[in-house]
Amino acid sequence: MRMSAAPRLTAAVNASEGSFIAADVGGTHTRVGLVRPGGDATVAVLAHRKYVCADYPGLAAILAEFIAGNGVGVDRVVIATAGVVLDDEVVNSNLPWRISLSQLRSELGLHEVLVINDFQANANAAQCMAPADSTLLTPGVGDSDATAGPVLVIGPGTGLGAAVRIPHGNSTVVLPTESGHTAFAPGNAREADMLRLAQQRGQTHVPTEYFVSGPGLVNLYSALCTLSGADASLRAPAAITDAARRGEAIAREAVLTFCALLGSVIGDLTVISGAKSVFIAGGILPQLKDFVPDSQFHARMLDKGVMRPVLERVPVRLIENERLGVIGAASWYLQHLAQTAADAEPAPRHPMQ
């Protein structure tokens, strides 16, 4: 089941009614929303648009076009993107251009620009979604099997992102990760051959996202073609997926291997984080989800030795909503405002003082 058009997303704040911009910046697409606190502590998306990153010289051009197109004046922007902020810049190998926070403030006349990890945003959005708003990828393992605890949110897009949402009192703490840059771990001889081939081609460090991401599917297909002595004629994930649906053998092997690898990575991260449930947030998987039942996705997720009985109780759900990152970034920002206001409150004085 696809997510409803108006997901139940809680900001849990008492913020001003001013609108601001939330942007979900990926290596291929940037999604921008004009948002504000909605009624009953929700995030209201007033306008939304998706842009192709390669069509613009930088993020400032995208935001300027969005602001002009909606005829509003805003001075606050929160950006969800992969990578980390180092001094004034976002460190991200998948973006087509650099992001300088001071440059954005200067060019667009902004008062405030904040950046959070894209999967930190996704985790903030996913935490309020009901089971009916997503597709269950682990038949027979639903929410009734899961127990309270951390939640893993992961997604293979231009790279591989993940975050862990951890219960903390009456609230939650979201721990962003750079799991896509961990070392790729093959699970069988064929995948070990893929790893050796990547190393022979000059990859001294082969990250997980080299095979488990949108571009990773292309790398995976290319490796399998080389190992099979065939010509790697397909250059895009969509072309590989279409060929797999037509029954082209290597393309189908590539897609099924991709699903198996994703399952294995989810199993690893679930064991590491102690997650009790998993959400896959968009990325390339919605285009591949019909292959998941025929793949080793769940079997590889469970194949973690003595941890198998634990993983057998972990449900995995696929979220499909292009606004997820925008809403998550907005939700995080509203919580940030609330926490800032709470921190500014003077401590209560003792009656004897």
Results as ranks from 00 to 15, higher is better:
residue 309 P to Y: 04
residue 9 L to Y: 09
residue 37 P to W: 07
residue 76 R to G: 05
residue 306 V to L: 15
residue 49 R to G: 00
residue 324 L to E: 06
residue 171 S to V: 09
residue 295 S to N: 09
residue 298 H to N: 11
residue 9 L to S: 09
residue 211 F to N: 00
residue 150 P to Q: 07
residue 332 W to S: 02
residue 238 A to R: 14
residue 30 T to Q: 11
residue 293 P to C: 09
residue 190 R to D: 15
residue 297 F to C: 04
residue 347 A to C: 03
residue 151 V to F: 02
residue 238 A to D: 15
residue 47 A to K: 08
residue 300 R to D: 01
residue 213 S to P: 10
residue 38 G to N: 03
residue 251 A to E: 04
residue 243 A to P: 06
residue 77 V to T: 03
residue 19 S to L: 10
residue 36 R to L: 07
residue 233 S to W: 03
residue 114 L to D: 00
residue 31 R to L: 01
residue 247 G to Y: 08
residue 79 I to Y: 03
residue 55 D to F: 11
residue 73 G to H: 09
residue 195 L to S: 05
residue 231 D to V: 13
residue 246 R to H: 12
residue 345 E to N: 05
residue 43 V to E: 04
residue 60 A to K: 10
residue 127 Q to M: 13
residue 242 D to I: 04
residue 244 A to M: 02
residue 275 A to Q: 06
residue 55 D to I: 07
residue 87 D to K: 10
residue 193 D to R: 08
residue 350 H to F: 06
residue 134 S to H: 01
residue 332 W to I: 01
residue 108 L to T: 07
residue 320 E to L: 03
residue 248 E to C: 07
residue 205 H to F: 07
residue 313 R to P: 02
residue 346 P to L: 11
residue 197 L to M: 14
residue 135 T to W: 04
residue 89 E to T: 13
residue 232 A to H: 05
residue 136 L to R: 15
residue 236 A to H: 15
residue 144 S to R: 15
residue 249 A to P: 00
residue 70 N to H: 14
residue 240 I to H: 06
residue 65 E to G: 09
residue 28 T to E: 05
residue 120 Q to H: 15
residue 109 G to D: 06
residue 202 G to T: 11
residue 290 D to C: 00
residue 280 I to G: 12
residue 66 F to G: 04
residue 192 A to P: 08
residue 41 A to D: 15
